[in-house]
Design a protein around this nucleic acid. Sequence first.
DNA 1: ATCTCTGCAAATGTTTTGCACTCCA
DNA 2: TGGAGTGCAAAACATTTGCAGAGAT
Lengths: 152, 152
Amino acid sequence: MNCMSIDLSNLRQKFREREYKLTPQRQIILQVFVDNRDKHLSAEDVHNIVRQQSNDIGLATVYRTLELLSDLDILQKMDFGDGRSRYEINETSTPHHHHHLICLACGKVIEFEGDLLEDLETVISRNSNFTIVDHQVKFYGYCQECRDKSED
Amino acid sequence: MNCMSIDLSNLRQKFREREYKLTPQRQIILQVFVDNRDKHLSAEDVHNIVRQQSNDIGLATVYRTLELLSDLDILQKMDFGDGRSRYEINETSTPHHHHHLICLACGKVIEFEGDLLEDLETVISRNSNFTIVDHQVKFYGYCQECRDKSED
DNA sequence: ATCTCTGCAAATGTTTTGCACTCCA
DNA sequence: TGGAGTGCAAAACATTTGCAGAGAT
């Protein structure tokens, strides 16, 4: 299994199972996320990217598709505090969690690789009568650029 | 220092330093958070609680106050994915981080005590040219009630 | 008197919804 | 031909902003 591309047959099956259709619009939107794997796209971002490819899709459809893909666990919805939801591909096949460093000065979001919390999940599950299936970590701080700037 | 009440003199000073006034409205809103220490209140929640006490405050003022208190690090702004921002008192005096278990079935948010990430912050700061000042962790899963329900 | 703060209403920006139309199966 | 999917416009909702008046020092 190639980790740089979505497993299309598996994905088609996911749609079938739930009786959803893999329409052209949905495929185009999926492709946007495949082509922008490192980004955290908002609905408007997706809409703009699609329009740049002269494949106009209604904004409402973009929203509906993003919700659908999140429900199917194909995308992960996240919030960086900038007033809009952002989405990225949920890499379930490779179970490495990546988290985010958010710069409090410029708002930049940097990826951070690490699955250091899996053990923690087990411990918490045992102690708290809560079955944990996922986690999301955000670190807040200052990126190098902003640190350099403030040293003027 | 009593950890169950806000250090008022320290707080007044925080306001003075930045040339903000501790107006009646701001005090009332602060008191709401002191009285609801275990909750995660939205702007509307706060507004309703204040109205129940027949202390009407404009919703815009509530929003402005919540932003101010967050800037002063008296409150912490957070997002549980329900489309509105939520706030709770930021316990800086006792530097234990508490995090949240969010039930994917019923949406309930459970507090979880633990400062297991402080070491991690140090490691990441060293490896990534990013100065971390805070973190926020959300665990997603299923609470006992919802687990019981689904076992019907 | 000045300057912040408040309340109201209007504006903004994101997301959702109603409805008619399209497209497959 | 029926039910899901789409596009458009309108609605809904949380949040922000402009402005005039209130309050404090």
